[in-house]
Design a protein around this nucleic acid. Structure first.
Lengths: 193, 193
DNA sequence: TCTCACACTTAAACTAGATTAAGAAATGGA
DNA sequence: TCCATTTCTTAATCTAGTTTAAGTGTGAGA
């Protein structure tokens, strides 16, 4: 739990009492590569903090193809916020791309902390605002019409992940085929010479 | 102000006292077609309720082309929530597509109402959740790779607006050229025969 | 009433990116 | 360690959507 608190305390220091309360509501999990913490059609009941590993959030289109919306790694929180807040069925999946160590909290427990610990409240206000901004940026990023530009802004947004993620996952995020991503990369290395 | 209250009271009835308080914080405006209620680079200071007329929210790419993210008409609330909540510069513009009658509230006044009137708080929780879901659906909609499918889901989402908006605005929302939208429409009318 | 700026359509030439296929490289599980 | 599966790359062919250009409304302001 230290990592979570360290993260938290970069913004707001916590008393021991607060830490005990938070600890009592949060549960630790190890989960395997390729397993899901959220499946479409289900309500998103858990908010997940990532201690180690990496997740992708994706939707599936009518033809059965999946499309990555977002990645999340160490230090990030991830959930389908819409589904979590309204407790309605989600249209999204959240899958571990690597073996992961995570902390999770369910909706009633989080709401209890939000009401009773002002620091947690402030912290989560920031987290959900960031989340909103991120998804809005996702929409804005899609404006850059060429795939090469989108790839470049992906590299800026996820510099630590670009070498860690399989190309297929990146292509799915960019909305192109892995073959075409390969072509783009080739083009870029040529330009660099 | 009646229209706003009527809207509101479909969800929660208000006392006269509450109405007076709300009225004291909200200001009425008439604004002309093509004028902006939010300009990129500025902080989004006002939350806008639309009594009549219609707005588009759009971003501008590096090449100077604008891309519609969202439309809003009678009964809708519109703002760049990210910018409004964090009071940081917005990357978006909100422009009247028709002459409009609107009510607006600024951030401190809204926050005051949220803290002092639980009904307003509940109401805005729903409004901002819907807003989040809407922008997330926008991302999901973009999955349907063909422009025709995206056009069809646009028609479902904005049935009342499809005949009211200029084709150019719809094309900008769909991420295609007006020429190609024209082609799609032609194709669809043929299919219908 | 005229006109000027916009909106809509059509069509021909062009391009970004998809699809298919096939071989090479890397990775993980037993 | 070896096999199986997944991942990456290249290249040829194909298509959805762009670009350019030209012609046709249409409504608001002078």
């Amino acid at each position: 739990m230290q990592v979570l608190f360290k993260d938290f305390e970069e913004i707001l220091p916590l008393t021991d009492h607060e830490k005990v309360l938070i600890e009592s509501k949060i549960s630790f999990q190890k989960i395997k590569r390729k397993s899901l913490v959220l499946k479409e059609g289900k309500v998103c009941k858990l908010y997940t903090y990532i201690q180690s590993g990496c997740f992708r959030m994706y939707g599936i289109d009518d033809k059965g193809f999946s499309h990555n919306i977002q990645f999340a790694a160490e230090g990030d929180w991830i959930a389908d916020i819409g589904s979590f807040y309204t407790q309605t069925a989600s249209k999204l999946n959240i899958e571990a791309i690597e073996d992961c160590e995570i902390y999770q909290i369910n909706q009633p427990d989080l709401y209890w902390l939000l009401e009773n610990l002002p620091k947690v409240n402030r912290m989560f206000k920031v987290i959900s605002e960031n989340n909103f901004v991120e998804i809005q940026n996702r929409v804005l990023q899609n404006f850059s019409s060429t795939a090469e530009q989108r790839y470049l802004s992906f590299l800026e947004q996820y510099p630590h992940l670009s070498s860690r993620l399989p190309n297929t996952q990146i292509a799915s995020y960019l909305g192109i085929t892995p073959e075409f991503l390969s072509k783009i990369r080739k083009g870029l290395t040529k330009k660099r010479l």
